[in-house]
């Protein structure tokens, strides 16, 4: 991607240690506006650790810039305010709540202030506003029709859509998707491909994915991690033919 454009998110020299174990070392990554970037690599390569360091879940060393400005590694609490939203590998929804309630939780940043009024439910207009936002978000993943269903009554592929709706409701500029195609059948995967492609019109997407078809069809660029280091990066075609990648990862997939 052209270096003239300033990166929305830029990571340099990221290292993460768990005790004596080096989970990530000297990782760099740039994410430009409206691009879809894939993070691939074998199990244990450090993909989810990279997400976790971006989300304040593990302690990270290295530098981070947002919109070209240096920024401390975010705490989990401030992510949404920074315009970053994330879905989780295990979906991470609240099973006892309805679809709409789950998505509304993602909208709480718009509910700030007026604690006592909020407690008494006096701010009816604001409450309706939140509900409208959540419904709009559900429409984007074609799930508005099931807003009142409890999440634990839904099939897995549908819950993945709800998780994305909850991430979208905070109106992120950067969306982190943790294995969006994991556990989906071919029809749902195609649907997810289209959705990710459409989302890139309004935000940048960074995704971790094992499903190579998805990676190849939705990503503009890829970073390949192996043993906690970036061993290759570039466009899909560049990475596909990179000998280090073929050896470390794609080759194994092709043979298996």
């Amino acid at each position: 991607m052209s270096s003239q454009r300033s990166a929305l998110l830029s990571i340099e020299g990221l290292s993460v240690h768990f005790g004596g174990l080096k989970a990530l070392s000297d990782v760099h990554l740039d994410l430009y506006p409206n691009e879809v970037v894939g993070l691939i690599g074998p199990n244990g390569a450090g993909k989810t650790t990279l997400f976790n360091s971006l989300c304040g879940i593990v302690q990270a060393q290295g530098s981070l810039s947002l919109n070209g400005k240096r920024h401390d590694w975010p705490t989990t609490d401030e992510l949404v305010d920074l315009g970053i939203a994330r879905t989780l590998q295990g979906v991470g929804l609240f099973p006892d709540l309805t679809v709409l309630e789950n998505v509304m939780i993602g909208a709480t940043k718009f509910a700030e202030g007026g604690l006592i009024r909020a407690a008494l439910g006096l701010d009816g207009k604001k409450e309706r506003h939140l509900k409208d936002r959540a419904m709009t978000s559900l429409e984007r993943v074609y799930a508005a029709g099931i807003a009142d269903r409890r999440v634990d009554s839904l099939p897995y592929p549908v819950t993945k859509r709800i998780a994305i709706a909850r991430a979208l409701v905070s109106e992120p500029k950067i969306l982190l998707l943790d294995e969006p195609a994991g556990g989906l059948g071919s029809q749902d995967i195609e649907w997810m491909n289209n959705l990710i492609h459409n989302l890139s019109a309004t935000m940048s997407v960074l995704l971790v994915e094992h499903h190579m078809d998805v990676v190849m069809s939705v990503c503009d660029r890829l970073y390949v991690l192996n043993f906690g280091e970036v061993i290759a990066s570039g466009t899909v075609d560049q990475v596909r033919t990179d000998p280090a990648v073929v050896a470390a990862y794609l080759g194994v997939q092709a043979n298996s």
């Binding site: 994330r86 909208a107 709480t108 940043k109 909850r166």
Partner: peptide, 18 residues
């Protein structure tokens, strides 16, 4: 809703902006 979310799964709630 935020109270329930924070009680259920605090880490997930945090990620969702609570």
């Amino acid at each position: 809703l935020a109270l329930r979310a924070a009680a259920f799964q605090p880490e997930t709630a945090r990620l969702a902006g609570v």
